[in-house]
């Protein structure tokens, strides 16, 4: 690892100021992706602005809009929460126990790894992302491979998940890394169905064809014939684009089965 300056920030404003005063500064949340990248010397920030010392960035609370989860809330805390069982279940499938004990929801969303789990929840549950500047509709947050709507230096402070009538997450993990090869969050808000998919594309997306079919008929049969265009899907040694396309159907069906059985 190269040398850097470590800063403990005392508030979101302080962190933001430290960031703008740094040469190539990066925020440090849980560090589960950033620290290995630094160890491998694939990134070399001049400054690390540690968000863990900021009061009030962690924690789960109920708000009028749903379940509000502070950006520095660790995955293990989300997996232990009870308000949205599908979200807790998703969190319990991230990485391993030790990753869940350190990794944070804000860090994961800001990183926007194409195979991370939380993006499926943001889209599948229709969440809103709160930052130090604004609220961002979850649907317009993920822009591309590791690309989000966040401006340079902007800090996620919390995420609010509306509480669905019912929801389920099904994940096909990479046997080596445990990232999602495909993950599908299916939710029924009472007024509509959402299907958030991660792992398959450059970033998470909503599977509209599945949503409209399920809106008409919430059953496995309603979606069994849907073919999804996989031409732009991710390709690696673990799964071709075609297999990822197939797995989207398989995971959505698994989630629907969970909700209908």
């Amino acid at each position: 690892m190269y040398q850097f300056k470590h800063h403990k920030s005392t508030s979101v404003d302080h962190a933001s100021e430290l960031h703008s005063n740094s040469d190539e500064g990066l925020y440090l949340a849980g560090g589960m992706t950033l620290i290995p990248s630094m160890k491998l010397r694939l990134t070399a920030p001049t400054d690390l602005i540690d968000l863990s010392s900021i009061e009030g960035l962690a924690g789960i609370s109920n708000s009028y809009a749903g379940l509000r989860i502070g950006a520095m809330t660790r995955h293990c805390e989300v997996s232990a929460s009870s308000e949205i069982p599908a979200l807790a279940s998703l969190a319990s499938l991230i990485g391993d126990n030790q990753v869940r004990n350190r990794g944070t929801i804000g860090g994961s969303l800001a990183n926007n790894d194409p195979a991370a789990d939380y993006p499926a929840a943001v889209l599948g549950l229709g969440a809103t992302i709160h930052t130090n500047k604004r609220d961002i509709d979850g649907d317009s947050f993920f822009l591309g491979l590791f690309e989000t709507a966040l401006d340079e230096g902007e800090i996620i402070t919390a995420v609010t998940f509306p509480i669905p009538k019912r929801a389920a997450y099904a994940k096909f993990p990479n046997p080596a890394s445990r990232y999602a090869i495909v993950g599908a969050m299916v939710s029924d808000s009472g007024s509509g169905i959402r299907v958030g998919i991660t792992g398959a594309g450059a970033c998470a997306f909503r599977a509209r064809a599945f949503e409209s079919a399920l809106n008409k008929d919430f059953s496995v049969d309603a979606i069994s014939a849907i073919e999804i265009d996989h031409s732009d899907f991710n390709v690696d040694i673990h799964a071709s684009a075609e297999f990822r396309g197939h797995l989207i159907g398989a995971m959505v069906r698994q989630a629907v089965v969970q909700l209908t059985e």
Partner: peptide, 23 residues
């Protein structure tokens, strides 16, 4: 699970970490 794979074009070991070599 396990398979050591070299990239046919570059000769690079694609399974060079536990992120891709399935232990």
């Amino acid at each position: 699970l396990e398979h050591g794979i070299y990239d046919a074009d570059s000769g690079n070991l694609i399974t060079g970490s536990y992120l891709d070599y399935a232990m």
